[in-house]
């Protein structure tokens, strides 16, 4: 199991009497497509928040390539290679998708800042255009994002994260707020963009059709615990999952 990119060991987190994470253990392999399911309050977002540094776990460890990143601020965790997208897209609203991607690639480039080198250079613009094309966003490239529809904004948000070239990409409810007929095309685009990336993708999802179609592994959360961790069909046929998560138990 040492080949795992991301290892989560014995993570615990409580808010007063509410246990949001109880002994969470997960190993994530390169190029994994891992889905987190569970009802509201089950601990999915707490997991994402602890891995990305928004919350500090009470105990336990998060390792990226064997190196601890537990409790680092989000910025340092991103620099280490764990990036996230947001349930409500977090964009630079008056900028265009191209400019939003340029912000990502500029930060991702790292190194000493070049104060007198234009941000819009042939190579940076080409890279941004290529990233937008992967998400099928070319036609929206030069319109301010605050004028774009919800599904497109979601994709721009995810594209910004992917432009960081992360090792692990966490997607917080990529299809929430998107109409049901848009969900599959949106996920198709995300998965197409991820194809060929070694990055592991972890997505929080409520729609079981999405989970079965796009995940190769599912973690089911209930009351802060992982109650199932397996291939989608096995998890979704698990009686406990059917009782507590999907509500399909007969």
């Amino acid at each position: 199991m040492s080949a795992a990119i991301l290892e989560v060991r014995g993570l615990n987190k409580s808010f007063g009497a509410v246990v949001a994470a109880k002994d969470i253990n997960v190993n994530v392999m390169p190029a994994a497509r891992l889905s987190l399911i569970g009802s509201n309050g089950a601990g999915k977002t707490t997991f994402v928040n602890m891995v990305t540094g928004y919350l500090k776990p009470d105990s336990g460890e998060v390792l990226l390539d064997g190196k601890p990143i537990t409790g680092l601020p989000p910025r340092r965790i991103t620099q280490a290679g764990v990036c996230r997208s947001f349930q409500i897209p977090q964009l630079c609203e008056t900028m265009t998708p191209t400019e939003n991607i340029l912000v990502s690639t500029e930060i991702a480039a790292g190194g000493a800042p070049h104060f007198f080198r234009p941000a819009r250079r042939r190579e940076t613009l080409a890279a941004a255009a290529e990233m937008l094309e992967r998400f099928g966003l070319t036609e929206f490239a030069n319109r301010p994002v605050n004028e774009l529809p919800g599904g497109v904004r979601k994709l721009v948000d995810i594209a910004m994260s992917l432009a960081m070239k992360p090792r692990v990409l966490l997607l917080d409810e990529p299809t929430s707020g998107v109409s049901s007929e848009e969900k599959f095309p949106l996920m198709d685009k995300v998965m197409a963009a991820l194809a060929g990336e070694k990055a592991a993708a972890i997505f929080v999802e409520h729609d079981m059709d999405i989970v079965t179609r796009y995940a190769d592994r599912v973690l089911a959360f209930y009351a802060g615990e992982i109650i199932a961790d397996d291939a989608p069909e096995d998890v979704l046929s698990d009686p406990a999952v059917q009782k507590y998560v999907t509500g399909t138990a007969r």
């Binding site: 990305t52 601020p73 989000p74 910025r75 340092r76 991103t78 620099q79 990036c83 996230r84 947001f86 977090q90 964009l91 630079c92 609203e93 008056t94 900028m95 400019e99 939003n100 340029l102 912000v103 990502s104 500029e106 930060i107 991702a108 480039a109 800042p113 070049h114 104060f115 007198f116 080198r117 234009p118 941000a119 819009r120 910004m160 994260s161 960081m164």
Partner: peptide
């Protein structure tokens, strides 16, 4: 030159969405 540079663009991004800029590293 600074405004048009990469760091200048990141400054504008911070004006628009500080949270995102931090989460981009």
């Amino acid at each position: 030159l600074y405004y048009d540079s990469g760091p200048g663009l990141v400054a504008l991004a911070a004006r628009e969405n500080e949270l995102r800029v931090e989460y981009l590293g």
